[in-house]
Write a protein that binds this DNA or RNA. Structure first.
Lengths: 202, 202
DNA sequence: GCACATGTGTAAGCGTCGCTCACAGTGGTG
DNA sequence: CACCACTGTGAGCGACGCTTACACATGTGC
């Protein structure tokens, strides 16, 4: 917890301090007062830059969604476009992001409830994620789901990946968390879903 | 918020008061002091029955897992044993439970992290859920997965169902939340997973 | 050069919360 | 009847989220 870099604003400082703290503890265990102290600033100062605690958490969650998107994009780039492997790589990126950033991941899904959040600015994170997923679904469409609503087959895969991520963060002992196992199960199921589509088409 | 029924202990009263409150607001928005006031008791009284706030939440989460189990068992009973429909019915029960009890559902997954919870008594909820899932997987085994680790195909289905539940509670607009759509997608994917197994066997 | 507005920090304080502790009443057991 | 475990009280502690009155620094229009 280094002191506030003079050249950077307190707003940015608070966000990065929160991201730092999230690497070792859940968001509930991080107080604004603590962050302010760490930055060598009074407890009231943060409220010059954020409407309240939730506003800061919301901005941080938005960054989380952005990082998740970047991680998936990066992992997918390694595989051939139009391949099932590419989709599975995206899923593995999603899952590994959650394992590597459990507290941030939890924050992302505890903040920004789309329909309950009234403040439109508070929904930046959600929108970033959504637009990415829309893109992903369109990619899947281009990769073989063209004749049907991409969500019809995209939704089961997306929810499965999200379920793996959530339950692995939760640390359920029932799931085998080895990369090889996860990859195999993801690949099998994705293939099966694709096969079901082909079958129906023929 | 009725006052404490004299014939019932404060311990039980606090648990049901918490369950009541969870029907209208998330657990973070419920204070022990508030519950105590509602039961006409001083703010310190609850601590005669619970080691702390988390202990109460943990007990409530355990009840949540129990209710989830009951809900799935009930919904599955309507379908023929050994059928894919039965598995899908269980999944729909899981999903509908989350939609109907969003705050309780969120609490269940924010408490009781298996590997971080050290207090063995604090893990009652997790154990109830786990033993139920184990049972479910064994059922699936009896229903056609006999020749392989039931988790190999059970995990993708379980995580998919959990993903649907989580994302629907989160209220993502990307998911079509109509019962018919959910059922169809669940059924399709479960069938596809089963088909992949048969294929491999032949 | 000066009045002024704007932005950002401080200090003090409010209400609430989780939790503790000394104390008191109550009911059952030897 | 003496004792004791149990359960509730009331006061209080420290922390937190947040607000408000105030100070100061900076840049702008006159």
């Amino acid at each position: 917890m280094r002191a506030l870099d003079q050249s950077v604003g307190l707003q940015e400082g608070l966000i990065t301090a929160m991201l730092d703290a999230l690497e070792s503890k859940p968001s509930d265990a991080i107080s604004i007062a603590d962050l302010a102290r760490g930055l060598g600033v009074s407890a009231g100062a943060p409220y010059r830059h954020f409407a309240g605690r939730d506003a800061l958490l919301n901005d941080v969650a938005a960054i989380g969604f952005d990082r998740l998107r970047a991680r998936m994009t990066q992992d997918m780039a390694a595989e051939d476009q139009g391949s099932i492997k590419r989709i599975v790589a995206g899923g593995m990126g999603y899952i590994n992001f959650s394992i590597e950033n459990p507290h941030l991941f939890n924050l992302m899904w505890s903040m920004t409830r789309p329909r309950t959040a009234t403040d439109p600015a508070a929904r930046a994170g959600e929108r970033a994620y959504m637009s990415f997923l829309t893109n992903l679904m369109q990619t899947m469409e281009a990769e073989g789901f063209g004749d049907e609503d991409p969500m019809e087959f995209g939704a089961p895969i997306w929810t499965m990946v999200h379920g793996y991520a959530s339950l692995l963060v939760w640390q359920s002992r029932m799931l085998d968390d080895r990369q090889s196992t996860l990859r195999r199960q993801l690949l099998r199921t994705t293939r099966a879903v694709f096969a079901a589509r082909s079958k129906k088409r023929e």
